[in-house]
Simulated assay, not measured.
Amino acid sequence: MNDILIQNTTAFFEKSFGSVPQKVVLSPGRINIIGEHIDYNDGYVLPAAIDKIICFAFEKNDSKKSKIIAIDLNEEFEIDLTQEVKLSKVVWTNYIRGVIKQLQDNGFSFEGFNCVFSSNIPVGSGLSSSAALECGMIYGIKELFNLDIQKLDISLLGQKAEHWVGINCGIMDQFSSVHGLENKVIKLDCNTLEYEYHNADFKDYSLILMDSNVKHSLFTSEYNTRRIECEEGLAIIKAEFPEIKSFRDCSEEQVLNLKNKMSEKVFSRVHFVVKEINRVVKACEALDQGNIEVLGQLLFETHYGLSQEYEVSCEELDMLVNTAKDDDAIIGSRLMGGGFGGCTINLIKKGHENDIKSKFSNLYLDTFGIELKFYDVKISNGTTLL
């Protein structure tokens, strides 16, 4: 599938600009096996790049302006690199404007370029298409103009670009899009940015995403609210236990002891975060030991926390996970991504995939009148030059 995407993107570039692209960049989406909503809470996460990508084609155009075409949207824009970068009402362009602004603000010098891009990452499904867009754009400009930008800095610049757009994201999405390796998950310390790879051999199980095809509008406002609630909870913990620097230093027992000093909502958020950080550690142990059944159980536990304590699930996602829990062919399932829609990630016994897809598709349509989509994913390499 990616071969066709690459061919179509380069052909579109040649048709649009009358030349062969000088650089072609592939930038992947990502999944997160476990460790949700803790990248901005100094926790550990366990993401991986996947074989769903954005393909970019670039060339220098020997001017001070850049022209960027989004093939899938049939839209384009031009930006004058000598002018101050400002937000636009055309939202998708802001991620690219943000990248250009961050590069310029950090002293990187580059000139005009032409770029087209196309994607097979489903937008709005929690697979971080925005991080793939930011990091792929930075990588392409870096390669085109021989800029000295390390992998970590690509991740950090991408994150800053997204902050500029108005999404106060953690580092996980950009980091995993850049640092991914085939058949490896990344245990990332979001505090120090230290990381280690663990083998992602799911043995007798397939990794399948179920796309709820809903995206509730609460996401941005509630996302930022959760950050504030967690910061409030951590401040209460630090006041009582000065030795605690971040949530990872905190035990569940300490949180329980402070329940009466927090509002009900703040307690629920903090309790989830501390338990989720611990689940990531257990998930790495399960992968190292090849105990995929334990990993599956951890996924179910994470979903319960996301739904009942962190309150970022929705009726559609809860239905999918509850149905999965009652099916012997599925050993683990949870919502993945920010929540309020998007995908569930599922570990399904090999040989049962088609039956599961048929069963869930019919049930979901009957319940909500919405088509359920499925994505078979494989763990793949990070942002790279073709």
Rank of each mutant, 00 (worst) to 15 (best):
S125Y: 10
F113A: 02
A132R: 07
G136S: 09
N94I: 03
G124W: 12
S109R: 08
S118H: 12
V123A: 09
A132C: 11
M137V: 14
S119L: 07
N120V: 04
N94H: 02
D105Q: 06
S129T: 06
R97H: 13
I96D: 00
V123S: 13
V99S: 01
V123C: 03
V99N: 01
N106Q: 14
W92A: 07
G124N: 10
E134V: 11
I100H: 02
F113D: 03
T93I: 03
D105A: 06
V91D: 15
G124H: 14
L127I: 11
R97Y: 12
Q104T: 04
S130V: 14
E111Y: 08
I100P: 01
N94G: 05
V123D: 03
R97A: 06
G112P: 06
S125F: 07
C115W: 00
S130F: 08
S129F: 08
E111P: 00
N94L: 03
S130K: 15
A131W: 10
C135I: 11
F113V: 05
F108S: 05
G107W: 03
V116A: 08
P122Y: 07
I100E: 00
S129Q: 10
G126H: 12
E111A: 12
F108Y: 15
F110K: 03
V116T: 12
L133M: 12
F108A: 02
Q104L: 08
S129H: 12
L127Q: 08
S129P: 11
C135N: 15
S130C: 10
S128M: 14
S128D: 15
M137R: 05
S128Y: 13
Y95L: 03
N114P: 01
D105S: 08
S130H: 14
Q102C: 02
V91R: 15
S128W: 15
